[in-house]
């Protein structure tokens, strides 16, 4: 096993979007999701000395975020008195079947599958984007995810449109490669 190390200075640039996608999938409110990501980083900083280097940095951060999501639902439950908690059983490996909802046949079963698949896909894409050179990643995200116009991106980054398209093209080619095995059937 390789030893892993933590590099907190790079967390925001490398993992913020990945964690944010995960969180949005769980709490479906982007403000709450943003707070959870922020708390995850802070908790990570605080417990960095307990990091044993067994898991990769990102896996370790996701584990913290999962706890934060659970805490969030606990808190909002105790506030409301009672509320329905719907979580996928995968993040609750050891308490599987504790949720009544899961024991009842789910009429939207297929929809839930689609949701999980989309979430998995989203995380796979974010993980691949994180491997891109910084500028390619930035331009690709602005263009594809945030849908910002070419003109605006060029102004903001001080590049010309043909530079922009070269960066987008390289990013897309790298992403196709990175996602290839699993998602391009």
């Amino acid at each position: 096993m390789t030893e892993h190390q933590l590099y907190p200075d790079t967390w925001v640039d490398n993992y913020a979007d990945y964690l944010f996608n995960y969180a949005v999938g769980r709490v479906s409110d982007s403000e709450v999701a943003k707070d959870l990501v922020s708390e995850t980083f802070l908790a990570g900083l605080k417990s960095a000395k307990n990091y044993k280097g067994e898991a990769a940095e990102r896996t370790w951060l996701i584990a913290i975020l999962k706890r934060k999501v659970i805490d969030y639902y606990r808190k909002s439950n105790s506030k409301k008195g009672k509320a329905e908690v719907r979580m996928s059983s995968s993040s609750y490996g050891d308490s599987e079947g504790d949720w009544l909802e899961e024991k009842v046949a789910d009429p939207n079963g297929n929809m839930a599958d689609g949701f999980m698949e989309n979430e998995e896909l989203g995380l796979a894409i974010q993980a691949c984007i994180a491997k891109l050179p910084q500028k390619q990643a930035l331009v690709f995200k602005m263009k594809t995810i945030q849908g910002i116009s070419t003109e605006e991106i060029c102004n903001e980054l001080g590049i010309n449109p043909s530079n922009l398209w070269v960066l987008v093209h390289r990013a897309r080619t790298a992403l196709m490669e990175c996602l290839n095995q699993k998602w391009f059937k």
């Binding site: 913020a16 979007d17 944010f20 996608n21 949005v24 982007s30 943003k34 990501v37 989309n118 896909l121 989203g122 894409i125 974010q126 995200k141 594809t144 995810i145 945030q146």
Partner: peptide
């Protein structure tokens, strides 16, 4: 990419 409904900060 559109299927995944990607989000970024």
């Amino acid at each position: 990419c559109s299927q995944a409904r990607l989000k970024t900060l």
